[in-house]
Simulated assay, not measured.
Amino acid sequence: MTFGKIKLGITVLAAGILVAFVTLFLTSTHAFRSSELTIPKISLEATYVEYGTVDALDSDAELIVIGTPLKDFDDRQHIVTTFDDGNIQDFYTLTEIKINKVIKAPEAATLAVDDSLTIIEPISYIENVEGKKKITYEDYTELKQNQKSIIFLKKNTQGQYSIINMDLGKFSLDTLSQPLSTLAKNQDPKVEFRKSILERYDLK
């Protein structure tokens, strides 16, 4: 066997390994995304303080930040508590965010840019004999990893910062280049509220 044939064989082998690796990566990525999309979602009604105006939301929020979740939703800590009979008592997710900007904070707070903060989102995962499901209050959707958002928070009875006003208590800033008219029509109230938020805090 000549040196040229050996070199050609090594090149073909390397190319084959590369193709196999890329195929495996794309397959696994596709599988993950497919499974994520097929997880059923259960939305429950909740009793909570609803803020119909930005002024009311701003006034009652103890902490307002622009922050970015550090982990994918699947990798966060999902908490579900149950009663003695097995029925769900409460659920939430602990989401760690990096603070990009502090807009409003208590005087005693020591939060600064690039600090991390763990907050509570009203959403989680449950698993039973029927499989894995996403459970949420008032159709709340989780903050997305690496997506910068303005977030309105208030401490709960355990002293943990929780998102208030459900889905109208956090708004992504990574979609600012997207015209508001292109957002889902069934989210018109959120579109208008988001527009008011952007104007109030000069985030346009």
Rank of each mutant, 00 (worst) to 15 (best):
M1Y: 13
G9S: 12
I10P: 05
T11M: 13
T11I: 15
V12R: 02
V12C: 02
G16P: 14
L18R: 07
F21W: 10
T23F: 13
T23V: 14
L24K: 10
L24P: 00
L24I: 15
L26E: 15
L26W: 06
L26H: 03
T29V: 09
H30M: 13
R33T: 03
R33A: 01
R33W: 04
E36H: 11
L37K: 15
T38S: 15
P40A: 12
K41I: 14
E45T: 09
E45A: 11
A46L: 10
T47H: 07
Y48K: 08
Y51G: 00
D55Q: 13
D55H: 01
D58Y: 11
S59I: 02
S59E: 14
D60C: 05
D60G: 02
L63Q: 04
I64R: 03
I64G: 00
G67S: 09
G67H: 04
G67P: 05
T68W: 05
D72Y: 13
D72K: 12
D74H: 06
D75I: 01
R76E: 14
T82S: 12
F83V: 00
D84R: 08
D84W: 02
D85M: 09
I88P: 09
Q89Y: 05
D90F: 08
T93C: 06
L94C: 00
L94W: 00
I97L: 15
I99L: 08
N100Y: 07
I103Y: 01
K104Y: 10
P106Q: 10
P106C: 06
A108P: 06
S116A: 08
I119C: 01
E121V: 01
P122Q: 02
P122K: 03
S124E: 04
S124R: 06
Y125N: 15
I126R: 02
I126L: 00
E130L: 13
E130H: 15
G131W: 04
G131P: 05
D139E: 10
E142R: 08
L143T: 14
K144M: 10
N146T: 11
I151W: 02
L153W: 11
K154W: 04
K155N: 09
N156I: 02
T157K: 14
Q158W: 03
Y161V: 01
K170A: 04
T175F: 07
S177N: 06
P179D: 02
P179Q: 05
S181W: 03
S181V: 12
T182V: 10
K185G: 09
Q187T: 13
K190S: 13
K190E: 15
V191C: 07
F193S: 12
K195S: 14
I197M: 09
L198W: 10
R200S: 07
R200Q: 15
Y201S: 02
